[in-house]
């Protein structure tokens, strides 16, 4: 269990000239700059695996339970169930379902979207009759909440030792006028004409999930997807580093106890 801090800022080198209009954003970032990211795995005791993601104001816990025997019908492939929730005070009004109640429409949609993204990499055929439960909880949504959920969930799955062919990260790009901004803050998201969100599998270089809201030009849309993928690839790199560090620590600990 190790805390690994990255920082201060992750820079992404893209073709800046195309969309560069204003040089600096409200919070002092360049258009293609991510907020500082902090990731950690394995901090929840009851879960098989867990991941924590923090970027800017966005804070997310994600836990994976299982694979464990499925109570319901027999299935040849394993099944995966995702549950994404927003805290009442996460700053995203309307997203959080009423207390104790069933999920809000948005939570439901995002849960199935997360399930799709994760199922593209998890080798469910290796877990017959089993179910894997992925539950994510957004403590605070300072923009790009859902993209970060994808990242945290991938970390948690890897930490749980679930077999995967790839590791996924999510990222968001907002289109404000003619300007693309990577990893928008909540304020930037609110004033944006449109947002593009991508779930990206880094190893296979495939887009596993795509969502666009609002209004975006076709050219901007295609550019935004490219930028999203570049950003996600960077996040994937950090995730791998985080997991490798954790694994090294674990090996070291085990080595000592065997001696």
């Amino acid at each position: 269990m190790g805390a690994i801090t990255y920082g201060p800022l992750v820079r992404i080198d893209g073709e800046g000239a195309k969309t560069k209009e204003r040089d600096v954003r409200e919070d002092g970032r360049r258009w293609d700059e991510l907020r500082p990211i902090y990731m950690r795995v394995g901090m929840l005791s009851t879960a098989t695996g867990s991941g924590y993601f923090e970027g800017g104001g966005t804070k997310i816990f994600c836990a994976v339970h299982g694979p464990r025997p499925s109570a319901s019908n027999y299935t040849i492939d394993g099944t995966m169930h995702c549950d994404v929730r927003w805290a009442q005070f996460s700053g995203r009004e309307g997203a959080a379902g009423r207390q104790g109640d069933s999920m809000s429409e948005e939570e439901r949609e995002l849960s199935s979207s997360l399930q799709r993204t994760l199922a593209s990499a998890v080798r469910l055929e290796n877990y017959p009759k089993c179910r894997i439960d992925v539950s994510a909880f957004v403590l605070e949504d300072g923009g790009g909440g859902f993209a970060a959920v994808t990242t945290a969930a991938s970390l948690a799955l890897a930490d749980a030792g679930v077999e995967m062919t790839d590791i996924m990260a999510g990222s968001t790009v907002a289109v404000i006028g003619k300007q693309l901004v990577v990893d928008p803050s909540a304020r930037e998201e609110a004033i944006a004409d449109g947002t593009v969100r991508v779930g990206f599998a880094s190893q296979r270089a495939k887009v596993t999930d795509l969502m666009q809201n609002g209004e975006v030009d076709l050219e901007q849309f295609r550019e935004a997807i490219k930028v999203c993928c570049t950003a996600s690839a960077q996040v994937c790199g950090l995730m791998k580093e985080c997991l490798v560090k954790k694994a090294k620590k674990w090996l070291k600990k085990r080595g000592r106890s065997e001696m």
Binding site: R116, S120, V207, T208, L210, M211, Q212, E215, L218
Partner: peptide, 10 residues
């Protein structure tokens, strides 16, 4: 213009 896009399938 694109005014809302979603993906499906894994």
């Amino acid at each position: 213009k694109s005014c809302g896009a979603v993906s499906a399938g894994t």
